[in-house]
Design a protein around this nucleic acid. Structure first.
Length: 405
DNA sequence: TTTCAGTCAATATA
DNA sequence: TATATTGACTGAAA
């Protein structure tokens, strides 16, 4: 499903309206913009790393999926929208003149408020490739540059300091997320039976500071380090609870979402009944097991990436871009196991599953598109497939009751 | 004050 | 046209 939203870009050419769009789904169901939905789907974070707020959209998805009718409803909505659009278009063609005049009519307001607003709008900064490269280079050397460094960079690149600061913030957090994904991918591959090993995790944590690849960086030992501790605990908890495994990408969702996440908000009282001893909502039992399918299961494969990190570190001294490229190389290095999203869809849920699949039918799309440039895509797809798979499973689960809020 | 997570929204891309 | 990317912003935590 989620994946389809990604793959559909191409698929769509053949089947224009076969899927729900990110925009519609995001705005209608999740209360998010299209960009956010895309981001969310393309780079889901491990569930345990999501904040309460971060879990919210996934909980919404889960709840939404719990009602098979919802998909239909949304499709209807989409159809209606399209109809309305066509209608509008049609009529606007026929009275284009009047339209023009009406748009001119809008212009009437020119003198008034709208215009000034337009003027107030800051143009979006678009960094040139060279600028990005330079920033990346700087990042390699210092992921957490001092204000002074930032100042210098800004001057050198002729950018605002705030732009440089923002760039570093964004870059750090986005790289971090990519790493999460890699972990998940690695996990889904190597996980087969490998149980989580704390040591592996810690090595991961070390690696994940990708800055690590950068010369120590005054050990400003930024907040980055902080996740590692709690993570482990959380991790083992999750593992214990769901015996599935750790860092499951956001969509352990339903489960934990419904558990700790936010009983209060959309709170339907019953939800509270089904809680574990920690007062959290209990996850549906079956959701836990299919170990082999839990992508996040194996953060432990990270040692490898640590090696890569080393490589980049050493290389970094010669080329600032190395870090980046090594980072990319990681992507290409892995093979994706595309999870058959429907494989385990229980018959009971077939209707919904089918609708979902036809709605978003990504598996074919995902498998058909591959090739060179798509290694990243594939990774994402595999990851998302996994999410979707669980989502679907959860959605078609009979005792969804337990998931209710 | 700084960092981060999450998000928006403009823009790029297919 | 739909999705992906990314600079900027907000609010929370430390």
């Amino acid at each position: 499903w989620l994946t389809s939203l990604k793959s559909s870009r191409r698929a769509r050419k053949g089947a224009p309206n076969s899927a729900l769009g990110q925009r519609l789904f995001g705005e209608t169901i999740l209360g998010l913009t299209q960009g956010s939905v895309s981001d969310l789907l393309a780079r889901p974070k491990p569930w345990h790393k999501l904040s309460l707020k971060g879990r919210e959209p996934f909980v919404r998805m889960q709840l939404w999926l719990n009602d098979p009718n919802n998909v239909e409803k949304l499709m209807d909505m989409k159809r209606m929208e399209k109809k309305a659009y066509m209608k509008r278009r049609h009529s606007s063609v026929s009275d284009s003149q009047s339209c023009e005049s009406s748009s001119a009519g809008i212009d009437y307001s020119q003198g008034a408020s709208p215009q000034p607003q337009h003027q107030l709008k800051k143009p979006r900064v678009v960094l040139a490739p060279e600028e990005k490269e330079a920033l990346k280079r700087a990042y390699q050397q210092k992921p957490y540059p001092s204000p002074k460094t930032i100042e210098e960079l800004a001057t050198q690149l002729n950018l605002k300091t705030s732009t440089v600061i923002n760039w570093f913030h964004n870059y750090r957090s986005r790289i971090r997320r990519e790493l999460f994904i890699e972990e998940i991918q690695a996990g889904s591959q190597s996980q087969a039976g490998s149980s989580d090993s704390p040591s592996a995790r810690s090595s991961r944590a070390a690696h994940s500071s990708e800055g690590d690849s950068c010369d120590g960086v005054d050990a400003e030992g930024p907040p980055d380090g902080k996740p590692s501790g709690p993570e482990a605990d959380e991790f083992s908890n999750a593992a214990a609870k769901s015996q599935g495994g750790p860092a499951e990408p956001a969509f352990e969702a339903g489960e934990e979402a419904l558990r700790g996440a936010r009983p209060s908000e959309r709170a339907e009282p019953e939800s509270l009944e089904d809680t574990d001893d920690e007062g959290r909502l209990r996850a549906p039992r079956q959701s836990s097991p299919p170990a082999p399918q839990r992508p996040g299961d194996a953060l432990e494969t990270l040692p490898n990436s640590a090696t890569e990190g080393d490589a980049s570190t050493s290389a970094a001294s010669t080329s600032v871009l190395t870090g980046e490229s090594s980072y990319k190389s990681k992507e290409s290095s892995e093979k994706i196991s595309s999870v058959p999203s429907t494989s385990s869809t229980p018959a009971s849920g077939s209707q919904k599953a089918n609708s979902l699949q036809s709605l978003f039918g990504f598996s074919e799309a995902a498998s058909s598109r591959n090739t060179r440039d798509s290694s990243l895509r594939k990774k994402k797809a595999a990851n998302l497939n996994n999410i979707i798979h669980r989502l679907e499973k959860a959605a078609s689960r009979e005792e969804a009751v337990e998931w209710e809020f």
